[in-house]
């Protein structure tokens, strides 16, 4: 049995208290692969490897059924805000 996008999201919410989270099911519905974008204060002062470890750890149970987990963003709220700002400054085509 696969894992639902909601399960992934709620596990991450409860363990990492993200201020922003986006989980995309990239498996085409079978629940075996996900893309995650997550922003959390808990990432403060941690390098990317450790942030990924935290996400993997939070999903330890789910990972048994997930074949592919891509963590595209694991940012602190500061980094996230900066990214958002630099995007809004881009001219609208």
């Amino acid at each position: 049995m696969g894992v639902s996008k909601e399960q992934v999201e709620s596990a991450l919410r409860s363990k990492l208290a993200p201020s922003h989270i986006e989980v995309i099911d990239t498996s085409g519905g079978c629940g075996a692969s996900f893309k995650v974008e997550i922003v959390s204060e808990q990432f403060e002062g941690k390098r990317l490897l450790d942030r990924h470890r935290m996400v993997n750890g939070a999903l330890a149970e789910e990972m048994k059924d997930i074949h592919a987990l891509s963590i595209t963003k694991a940012l602190t709220p500061d980094q996230w805000n900066k990214q958002q700002q630099s995007q809004t400054f881009q001219p609208v085509a």
Partner: peptide, 12 residues
């Protein structure tokens, strides 16, 4: 040193 997986290597 362990660097990570594909997401991390791409990011770096």
């Amino acid at each position: 040193e362990f660097i990570g997986g594909s997401d991390i290597i791409l990011n770096m």
